[in-house]
Simulated scan of single mutants.
Amino acid sequence: MSDDLTLHAHLVGRQGSRADLNTPVLVLDLEALDRNIAAMANLAREAGIGLRPHAKTHKSVDIAKRQIVAGALGVCCAKIGEAEALADGGVNGILITSPVAAPRAIERLASLAKRAKGLMATIDHSAVAERINVALAAEGATLDVIIDIDPGIARTGVASAEAAVALAQAIAALPNLTLRGVQFYCGSQQHIEAYAERRAAIIERTDYLKSVIAALADTGFSPEIVTGSGTGTHRIDLDLGVFTELQAGSYVFMDKQYLDCDLTGEGDGPFETALGVDARVVSANHSGLVTIDAGFKSLSTDGGIAVVRRGAPETAFFAFMGDEHSALISPDIGKQLAPGDPVTLTVPHCDPTVNLYDHYHVVEGDTLAAIWPVSARGRAR
């Protein structure tokens, strides 16, 4: 057996047990995680708005519950499968942020609406709203819904203020649906590294959002909820004051993509790096290169490359070398490290990296404190 619990359950609570973990392994610093959760919760509380963090980042019942205890209204989920996993784990107040449109998925949504307290879903098409209404009627359930507004990337969402009004009117005619507000997530702006450039982009998009809200209000559909934002733009969105709740997600972990961004305009980092992948050197036969046991199967590839956090020179260049391996390249690194030596990496993009693992190995210092399941791993449908 090679599953995480069989390999590592006996290490929980043993001093220094992180050093005995079989690698590659997804490691979560509990104290940094809790500080990140508290920091975002405090920002939202001080601004007087809600926080509904996006659980597509962590896919974890354990983390979602910590966020709610700290003050979150609930969490967001990207897909119905994620929402099912978290709701069945006891998480309330879930907003599904992607349209649920497939026939079987709509049936599952209606079923989930009966058992998940505070469930909401986004809608961007009247025909889908009608199908959801029929499924809800069959289940004897109702559902609060949010109109998704396209922020300009043509992925999901209504494409104009007029389309938003038309959809609001269609929803109002459906007895099992209650319109609660709008969603506006500017995903392509989140990773603009320069604060001033990112702020200018968000101001322009927020002006458009205001025009949609005004059109809805003028026709009797003033939104109670305006939900969106992300880790990259949360400070800007708090300052602009249009959102009633934030959907930021990656702040709990902080991957390389967000570490490369100036989140505050002051060059400081408001959140800590809590997530990492522990790996080990498996070959060191060249003076300027060592090979580690974490490759494409252990790290996402869509957000650049991983970086060394500890165990090797921080200036070492990371390069994928296939499914199972990567290289760390630095002068004389092959003389500094030997096979079996541990290395911790900061991941390029946390969301898809987490989805590669069954469990978080939660550490306090160098001790394994707990093993938490990635509850919604693979729940993409």
Rank of each mutant, 00 (worst) to 15 (best):
E107G: 01
G74M: 02
E84W: 00
A70D: 07
L86I: 01
L73H: 06
C76G: 09
A83I: 14
K79E: 03
L86C: 00
R104T: 11
A101P: 03
R66T: 10
A101H: 08
C76A: 11
S98A: 15
K79R: 11
A70G: 10
S98D: 06
C77L: 06
E84I: 00
P99L: 04
R108W: 12
I68P: 05
E84N: 00
L109Q: 04
C76Q: 03
A105S: 15
I80A: 11
G74V: 03
G89F: 04
R66P: 11
V69Y: 10
V100A: 12
A102P: 04
R104I: 12
A70V: 12
A101T: 13
P103A: 12
V69W: 12
G89K: 06
C77S: 11
A64K: 08
A70F: 07
K79Y: 10
G90S: 15
P103Y: 07
L86T: 00
A64Q: 09
P103N: 08
C76R: 04
N92W: 02
V69Q: 15
G93R: 09
A101I: 13
A105F: 11
K79H: 11
L95E: 10
A64G: 11
Q67L: 05
P99C: 03
C76T: 09
E84C: 00
I94Q: 07
